[in-house]
Design a protein around this nucleic acid. Structure first.
Length: 855
RNA sequence: GCGGAAGUGGCGGAAUUGGCAGACGCGCUAGCCUCAGGAGCUAGUGGCCGCAAGGCCAUCGGGGUUCGAGUCCCCGCUUCCGCACCA
């Protein structure tokens, strides 16, 4: 009798996998490939069980696919650039390079102690020059294609992180990382033209059938495509001098041109370019500017608190509604967004709730021009705006048309007069990637007074991040303080020039790392297209839902950039996406500051890696949030020990390479037949739970059922009695079993050990070895389900009378509907409910149920 | 406010196509084994009534469709998530 000692097994098998390079793979066109990937990790120092859950999910998939005969690529790496390491350095700690390398070493050890089957020879870190060189190379390609460009614009600035943030990185008005409210700053920045792919990124979501709807919805909303029109409102009296001349009209964006006859004012965002000019020409420029300034200052605070009160003021100027030809007042309003559309809107109070509130507050006229249900609306009696589509009224020649008919005609009319055109507007904006920080990829650009902006020639890449000794945390780029870095000769004219000193957003690093994994040591290219063609796209990708927009939309963008560079031949990089739920402790997300982290190493020390792996898979479906409990982990440990004892009990009888002769199954008894059925049914369930349904929790419970069945069977086999007998110790089976019993049990135990391998690989490998199998649990080791065996020959069919189950019939599985009906009506328990009553209806669901209606 | 997902025993969860609600595990109870048990084995464990056989009720609440609803439809409540003046 041997004891289950997981810690010894962990060590033994982890060493063996490493020395045999068990998980390293190469391109092999003769085998189907499977690329299994978990989002790589930011090396924060310590992984807690919440992080680790994701890697276990991926590992179960990877190990299963490997056993199913796939050539499985399962790599891991480090999203190693980023602010926390640099911030720690500012606080007087270690250089980011040193702390990052140390954190990587520790976290890698944690993953290895979990027995995650990574191809570690492909490990990469984005802070390696061999990696970020290709960030720079790609940046230059994008610059050449006009996909990377520089412009001055108002950007999000995090005062705490001392850097610019992309729109995607602003959450609830605050920095995604530290939560501090962001400010607006005008800065020269590099942008990636992701909007060039807006339509494609949106349409592409339809094809992502194996992504969660939630993520697709979030991406669609983020892209925010809306179709409408730009319409020009000429100024009533174009100012005769100065700024006004070139800006003698206001262009608005609207999705509801059908309501334009109801436009009774025009609203400008405080940031609108025309505002300064109007202020200049106004009666009281100082007061005008003061009010604009108040709105702009307000914006920041308002973002945090949510709703702000609508405010505005009349500029005193008027514009001409191009459809009514009537002048309407121009107001500046705090709720009009400068960044969206044209920064100006037409105010249609009768049919837009915001305009309605604004008009009521400032006593602006309300004109009804749409009747939703044909019944006239009274402008004075409106309680809220009538936003629904309907039939146009009081709209000149368009009166009487439906909204949908009117819109294209009105756009065409505006266009004919040069006062408008149909446009599509996106919420998505170009991705600002400049960061005024040190610990990132240097942007490979040079500024020359003669030649302007010049990319670093490919031959001079990588632009290596210089070692900086002092981190001050001041608001300019640390690289600007390194003269040896900044001062450079212009690649074109050779004269003195300056390097760009900003670094790239780290989301650039993570937008293509999954390609590099296919060919991680290539020093001539970012990757060999032929190798990528074999491995990509990623078949299974899992990670946190917090990347639903950020990383996943950027990666989809990069895939298209590589495609248009001719380097990949797909558009979507991730075929299937799983967003795993978080692990909570005491009802809250684990975090160092809360002090509620569960350390995987502590758990491994106590129960072994396999118990931890199994518990995390068993506790809930992968995408659900779970609450950590130590008791649950103990339960999984008990299960593994139970399996261990089972194997221990049978090992002498079933061990060795003996192969069952096919005909032995012809003489099995009833108990043996039941066990065989359970075995094959379990294979079917576990296989589909892992591969198709990704319900890893029910895969585990199916195996638990098989173990329970094996225990019950062992009891019978031991005692020779048909039923279970309390007190019998299954550990003393002796060697007296029938040949049939041995074959059936061997079949069951072997299948069990194999199916357990993805979840509890160390325990399974050890048991497999103890069973005397010379080949390990490698390729093609997955058990096969015999559908004929899995199918029950007898089934129990419930009989309902008026919707209540009154009897159960045990019948052959292939019983006909007629026979089932006959048996049901003849059943004595059923008859007590049917005698003296009329059977009005009989419904037979073949093989499932009989339902009688009596009266 | 808009959009999405969800609501099932004491707890985590299962029910795959509209067909026996509560698989599996945790916890709890009892028996066995044991020097001992925080080990193991066996049995029980949604509620109510009943000695029992059995019956009734039960999947957030209320309606509906159906022979049959946790599952489909309508109304409402609650929770979580995302978006949040996007014109």
């Amino acid at each position: 009798m041997s004891e289950y000692r997981p810690r010894d097994l962990d060590r033994k098998w982890q060493q063996r996998w490493a020395s045999s390079r068990a998980f390293e793979v190469d391109v092999d066109p003769s085998r189907p490939k499977f690329y299994c990937l978990e989002m790589f990790a930011y090396p924060s120092g310590h992984a807690h069980v919440g992080h680790v859950r994701n890697y276990i999910i991926g590992d179960v998939i990877a190990r299963t696919k490997r056993m199913r005969g796939y050539n499985v690529l399962h790599p891991f790496g480090w999203d190693a650039f980023g602010l926390p390491a640099e911030n720690a350095a500012i606080k007087g700690g270690l250089h980011p390079e040193v702390s990052t390398r140390g954190n990587i070493a520790h976290m890698k050890g944690q993953l290895q102690r979990l027995g995650i089957s990574y191809a570690w020879e492909r490990e990469l870190a984005t802070c390696d020059a061999e990696y970020y060189k290709w960030n720079q190379w790609l940046f230059v390609r994008m610059f050449e294609k006009g996909l990377a460009y520089r412009r001055r614009s108002s950007v999000n600035w995090c005062p705490s992180c001392q850097t610019v943030l992309a729109n995607e990185q602003v959450v609830d008005g605050g920095c995604w990382r530290c939560g501090i409210p962001v400010e607006r700053r005008d800065l020269e920045q590099w942008f990636f033209r992701i909007t060039a792919y807006a339509d494609e990124l949106l349409d592409g979501t339809d094809a992502l059938s194996r992504w969660p709807d939630k993520v697709l919805t979030m991406q669609r909303n983020w892209i925010g495509r809306s179709e409408g029109a730009r319409v020009t409102y000429p100024l009533e009296h174009p100012p005769g001098s100065g700024v006004g001349d070139s800006a003698s009209a206001i262009e608005v964006f609207t999705t509801r041109i059908d309501t334009i006859y109801g436009a009774t004012f025009v609203l400008l965002a405080p940031e609108h370019p025309l505002v300064a000019g109007l202020a200049e020409q106004s009666k009281d420029p100082a007061s005008f500017r003061r009010q604009v300034q108040a709105f702009r200052a307000q914006d920041r605070a308002a973002r945090m608190s949510g709703e702000i009160e609508k405010q505005g003021f009349d500029t005193g100027f008027r514009a001409i509604n191009p459809f009514t030809n009537q002048p309407v007042p121009i107001w500046v309003a705090n709720f009009v967004l400068g960044e969206y559309g044209t920064g100006a809107v037409m105010g249609v109070p009768a049919h837009d709730q915001r305009d309605f509130e604004f008009a009521r507050k400032f006593n602006l006229p309300i004109r009804v021009v749409i009747t939703p249900d044909g019944r006239p609306l009274d402008a004075d009696g409106l309680a809220e705006a009538a936003e629904a589509y309907g039939t146009l009224v009081d709209s000149g020649e368009y009166s009487g048309l439906r909204s949908a008919e009117a819109q294209p005609r009105m756009v065409a009319a505006a266009r004919a007069r040069g006062l408008g055109e149909a446009t599509v507007q996106y919420r998505l904006k170009d991705w600002g990637i400049s960061r005024q920080r040190y610990w990132g990829t240097p942007i490979p650009m040079i500024y020359c007074d003669t030649d302007g902006i010049v990319p670093v020639p490919d031959g001079q890449l990588p632009v290596v991040l210089p070692t900086v000794a002092q981190f001050t945390g001041r608001g300019d780029s640390p690289l600007a303080q390194v003269p040896e870095f900044v001062d450079v000769n212009c690649p074109t004219c050779g004269g003195p020039a300056r390097r760009e000193t900003d670094t790239m957003d780290t989301f650039v690093d993570s937008s293509w790392y999954f390609y590099r994994f296919a060919d991680p040591r290539n020093d001539r290219q970012a990757f060999d297209p032929a190798v990528v063609r074999y491995w990509l796209p990623v078949d299974f990708y899992s990670g946190g839902v917090e990347h639903a927009i950020l990383h996943l939309i950027y990666s989809r963008f990069f895939a298209r950039v590589f495609r248009d560079l001719g380097m990949v031949d797909h558009s979507e990089p991730f075929t299937q996406l799983l967003t795993q739920g978080m692990v909570l402790k005491d009802g809250a997300v684990m975090s160092k500051s809360r002090g509620n982290v569960v350390d995987p190493d502590t758990m491994i020390q106590k129960y072994g890696a396999d118990a931890l792996r199994l518990y995390v898979m068993f506790v809930a479906p992968p995408e659900k949030e779970v609450e950590w409990t130590d008791a649950g982990l103990e339960g999984s440990f008990r299960f593994l020990a139970r399996v261990w004892r089972l194997v221990d009990h049978w090992v002498d009888a079933i061990g060795g390479e003996g192969v069952a002769r096919g005909d032995v199954y012809l003489t099995v008894n009833a108990a043996e037949r039941t066990l065989r059925r359970k075995t094959h049914e379990t294979i079917r369930r576990v296989t589909s739970d892992i591969e198709e349904r990704q319900q890893l929790n029910t895969a585990v419970s199916a195996m638990m059922e098989l173990v329970n069945e094996l225990y019950a069977f062992s009891d019978r086999a031991v005692t020779g009695a048909p039923g279970r007998r309390a007190g019998e110790d299954v550990a003393h089976a002796g060697g007296m079993e029938r040949r049939e019993t041995i074959c059936v049990v061997r079949e069951a135990v072997e299948a069990l050990v194999r199916m357990l391998a993805p979840f509890a690989p160390h325990t399974a490998e050890e048991m497999w070895e103890r069973l005397g199998r010379s080949t390990g649990l490698g390729a093609a080791a997955w058990p096969a389900c015999d559908a004929d065996v899995a199918r029950a020959e007898e089934i129990v069919v419930p009989v309902q009378v008026n919707g209540k189950v009154r009897s159960r019939l045990t019948v052959p599985a292939d019983v006909s509907e007629q026979e089932l009906e006959r048996l049901a009506l003849a059943d004595s328990a059923v008859r007590t409910y049917t005698t003296g009553k009329a059977v009005k209806k009989v419904v037979v669901a073949k093989g499932r149920l009989v339902s009688l209606v009596v009266q």
